[in-house]
Design a binder for these strands. Structure first.
Lengths: 271, 271
DNA sequence: TTGCTCCTCACGTCACGTGAGGTGGC
DNA sequence: TTGCTCCTCACGTCACGTGAGGTGGC
């Protein structure tokens, strides 16, 4: 048995505000069981309480409304569980990142004004196997992981031992939080022609002059090294509007602890 | 030594997007060191990198811009630490709540369709010591804690042993997520006149007929009991538009574990 | 008839992002 | 002169909240 109630009463039954209920109706997430054709009054069935409770729970977990829509729309239990599981995974990752930011904040507040050794380096042009894509800042870690796994896999198949691991970042990546990124593996001089699947490219990276600083520790602290190195560059040298390069000397594949990571940040400068 | 750079270069130094930097200028959170009077071009000093990094960290921790403003504005270290500490406390509390919601979600997904015992009760009017305030839903737990601690403190001073602990919730509290709440302690019949500080009131609660259900467990699951009880009421009885009452039989002061909480939910119905 | 519930706009919030359209400096 | 960087609106996003102004049902 199920009874129809007005929006106010349904709000008391579900602890969803009237404004929220109207919004969920507007976007067809929770449509009233009936609507009075004359007055437009919404009538909800008591059988809709459970859906409302699900929406309430998932919103408390910051799930976006379109995703909630997807969860409620499916009656395939395993698909629904997968959606929920994925969301909880994302929340876990978020939490993990938050913990890192807190640690990083303590570092920024500490008295340790990091003195930075800046090296001036003339790099020759190199031959690389690479992946180029437009990447949002939030997705950069995932992108690099996937790219390097594809690249190393390909080189292993071809029996080639790669040189350095690196990536170049277009200016837009910093100024608009989204830009063209090239993740690459350096190919030793004299590497013969390779079979290259079409998500990868073999290409050349131009040489040039760089101001180079070593970043020690987790990637979340990159802005400290960028700030220090960049300040040094604009104060003492002439920066060029070319992509910045990062060279991953020690990364997630080589060290278990992020404090062990070592990355060279290479800022293009005029010769 | 400090050098001035354009907004694009400063973006590369700080990993803040150009749009974000312009926004921070608009709200006077991070004002460029100088602005070209002719062109409006913003020039940032390398000495501003540290402030930018602080903003970046705090935003990653979801701190609202006005609060970041406050953190940066003070040069009193202990005050700044207090603001940061408070924010981290709030994040901890949020995290704790998230864990509870996840547990609660599992409950909703489980097969345990909770069968609810509904009792019809005629309550007499009672004499109470109370706190009345307009409270937002998000603040209700804090409000009740403070109210009950003030109320029990006052009664202890007066040497009076209270009857039941309860609260009434205006309809607006549910329909608009904010409404008038009365937290009360029942006074035994024949309680003599009391000294009452002016944040408290001695008053009467009207009697009436209620449909009552027992809610077992954490408050975060209240909507399940409300949904079940409210559905029963609209299907079998006549609800009245009066404040709903909750009676806290076992609460945080009496049980260490939220699973031990016991609360009666009382829905006003026609006689 | 008076309250009460409910309705639909239109606009605000928060922290920016997304173009459009245009200008100054090298 | 051509690019390039930078500028200022105006509007969009997301999930509602905040009134204003008005109507139907008891």
């Amino acid at each position: 048995m199920t009874t129809a109630v007005g929006i106010g009463e349904f709000s008391r039954l579900t602890h969803l505000s009237v404004k929220a209920l109207r919004h969920y109706h507007d976007i067809a997430l929770l449509v009233p069981a009936e609507i009075d054709p004359g007055t437009g009054y919404r009538r909800y069935a008591t059988g809709q309480v459970h859906a409302a409770q699900m929406i309430n729970r998932l919103r408390s977990l910051q799930m976006p409304l379109p995703q909630i829509q997807a969860v409620l729309a499916t009656d395939d239990t395993s698909e629904r569980d997968r959606l929920l599981h994925d969301h909880l995974q994302r929340m876990e990752a978020e939490l993990d990142r938050t913990r890192q930011v807190v640690a990083s904040l303590r570092g920024l507040l500490g008295t340790t004004a990091p003195s930075l050794a800046v090296e001036l380096r003339d790099s020759p042009a190199i031959d690389v196997l690479a992946v180029r894509e437009t990447v949002a800042r939030d997705d950069i870690y995932t992108f690099c992981n996937q790219a390097f796994s594809a690249l190393t896999g390909q080189l292993a198949e071809s029996g080639v031992t790669p040189g350095s691991f690196g990536a170049t970042y277009d200016e837009n990546f910093f100024t608009e939080d989204r830009g063209s990124v090239v993740a690459y593996l350096e190919l030793p001089a004299g590497t013969p022609p390779l079979a290259v699947p079409n998500n990868l490219v073999r290409t050349g990276l131009p040489g040039g002059r760089f101001a180079v600083a070593l970043h020690s520790g987790p990637y979340i602290d990159f802005d400290r090294t960028y700030g220090a190195l960049g300040s040094y560059v604009v104060e003492h040298l002439t920066p060029l509007p070319e992509p910045i390069r990062e060279i991953y000397l020690v990364g997630p594949d080589d060290a278990d602890d992020a404090t062990g990571y070592r990355t060279e940040v290479c800022w293009p400068i005029a010769a």
